[in-house]
Amino acid sequence: MTATAWWGAIAGVGLAIIVGAYLVAVADRAIASVVAGEPMRSSILAGPARSVALGLVQSRTTTERPDGAAWALAPALYLGLAAAALAVVPLSETLLAADIENGLVLFGAAQALAVIPVFLNGWSPNSILPLIGAFRFIAQALSYEMPNLLALLSVSVPASSLSIHDIVASQHGLWNVVRLPLGLPLFLFAAASLAFWGPMNLPDGADLAGGTQAETSGLHLVAWRAGRAAMLVAAAAMGAAAFLGGWLGPGLPGWAWMVVKTLVLLVLLVGSRHVAARVRAERYVVISWAVLIPLALLNVMIAAVVAL
């Protein structure tokens, strides 16, 4: 890979993150307006930009004896992991930022490592409510990672490959969402958990006054929210590639199909925030271990049968 290609890939992923995160914020406001029965206002489009401007204007608060370096690192690390996860997802048959054979493994690793920045963001302020949020995410991550990885593993079986490019190519004729029907719901559950979004927002819930972000303000808060939105974008893109046939589809160019499918999943994920109440931590853990992991194992077995 040439230096130009490297820079092009980095710029492409960066642009996708920025545009995607902005779309998440716009979609969130639009869906909220629909649910609240309000007219669509111009602030739906401009609102996220204004909030970013406010973040740039507002000072960054601090707490009593925080771990300042770890606290500052948390949003950057979370954003970086989202970018790494997105980089391995192909936009089309030929357009891919990081063309590696084990893309699925890297994506899974980026998701698994997300527990570190979330814990850092809760632990570093030296404050009780963010700390509880961090504790919650540890329990949450231990619960969703197994269904998540098993759901991802299931799509690699019919493709006989860990390359996401090969996984998309293996869906010619029949998408994984049809032949592995449990995979996409399991993956979306994990995606919402990973970004602790909507009903899965245990670490940053209102009962903790914002949880891991309760003590943050200004640019730090903007970066943290952007990281969550970027993680949703990465997960939606992977969901489109792994379960909805990626760039495959009639008529439109491959990249257009990929964008459309990603947006559909993104709207589903974003919209969950406005229709489903936050689940209880205990029930979340019980359901994950007692129901979702067995379902995910069943999904892998179905994948093995499909691959025969």
Binding site: I31, A32, S33, V34, V35, A36, G37, E38, G198, P199, N201, G205, A206, D207, R273, H274, V275, A277, R278
Partner: peptide, 13 residues
């Protein structure tokens, strides 16, 4: 209560 459970848009309604 709806806001507490994360249903902000419904809470606004």
């Amino acid at each position: 209560l709806l806001h507490l459970y994360g249903l902000d848009a419904l809470a606004r309604l």
